[in-house]
């Protein structure tokens, strides 16, 4: 695979950290959902996070753009330490794009308006420029002809590709994917993964929560396995899949790769 070849020669040791998590802890009531998470993400690095449901992987990436608030530890994104300051949070969200499991497109706006909304209102970009960027991105995700339709008129795969384009419209430095293919019919998974592989090839920094192990093998620099709120094991994908060290990792991989 070409993507794999490209990845093999990439050396990230000199790159600076875009995201740093230092002993991050979070509780939902009494439930310890993130316990002592330490994570460094370098510029251009692609990370796949996997683990059983309830292991805290979605919560982890939702903490990075403050959709969830962590209760202890530090999160530094693009040099800015997350705090309760609204300006601070908005500054981080401008640099971090997010794609959700359930797409979360705005159903009352056309596809084009979905894409141009944030550039126009958050970046104060002139409407014409925003529309140019939006159309270029719709071309890239291969659905320019749907620009004037509403989200409800598109298939799930198309909606998710629009959601990716919408996040890219803000020219983010980091993209977070929260199980982007889990709500899709099987025949639509590939069209979304193709877009994500392309994006990875262009050097975007990505954190993907996903169970698409083929995608992890092809794209990831590092695969992280989480269980019960902890990072249990992390490694390069070849090593991770071929020789998992932890018993829990072995069990999990056995369950999802059994067929």
């Amino acid at each position: 695979m070409a993507a794999m070849a490209a990845k093999a020669v990439r050396d990230l040791s000199g790159a600076s950290s875009l995201i740093e998590l230092r002993s991050v802890n979070k509780w939902f009531g009494q439930f310890h959902v993130l316990s002592d998470i330490n994570l460094d993400v370098k510029e251009g690095e692609k990370i796949v996070v996997c683990g059983p449901s309830g292991s805290g992987k979605s919560t982890l990436i939702r903490c990075i753009n403050r959709l969830e608030e962590h209760q202890a530890g530090d999160i530094v994104v693009n040099g800015v330490t997350l705090s309760n300051d609204v300006k601070n949070i908005e500054a981080i969200r401008r640099e971090v794009g997010m794609v959700f499991q359930s797409f979360n497109l705005f159903p009352h706006l056309t596809i084009l308006d979905n894409l141009t909304l944030a550039p126009i209102w958050v970046k104060k970009m002139p409407k014409k420029d925003a529309e140019e960027i939006a159309m270029a991105l719709l071309n890239r995700v291969r659905i320019p002809e749907q620009a004037l339709k509403y989200p409800g008129q598109l298939s799930g795969g198309q909606q998710q590709r629009v959601a990716i384009a919408r996040a890219l419209c803000m020219r983010p430095k980091i993209m977070l994917f929260d199980e982007p293919t889990s709500a899709l019919d099987p025949e639509m998974v590939k069209e979304v993964l193709d877009v994500m592989v392309e994006l990875a090839g262009e050097g975007m920094t990505m954190i993907c929560v996903t169970h698409e192990m083929g995608f992890a093998r092809a794209v990831a620099d590092r695969v992280i396995f989480m269980d019960r709120g902890e990072i249990v094991e992390q490694n390069e994908p070849e090593e991770f899949f071929a020789h998992p060290r932890n018993e829990r990792t072995k069990l999990f991989l056995g369950q999802i790769l059994h067929h």
């Binding site: 753009n65 403050r66 959709l67 609204v86 908005e90 969200r93 401008r94 971090v96 794009g97 997010m98 959700f100 359930s102 797409f103 979360n104 497109l105 705005f106 159903p107 009352h108 909304l117 944030a118 209102w121 958050v122 919408r166 996040a167 803000m170």
Partner: peptide
């Protein structure tokens, strides 16, 4: 309104008035 609509607006960096006027109210009133 589903929680995802609020989260998507937040994740895009919209502030509270923008989120309310552009995303939430148009849908809620409909």
């Amino acid at each position: 309104l589903p929680k995802g609509q609020f989260e998507a607006a937040d994740a895009m960096g919209l502030n509270y008035p923008q989120k309310t006027l552009l995303i939430i109210l148009p849908q809620a009133i409909r």
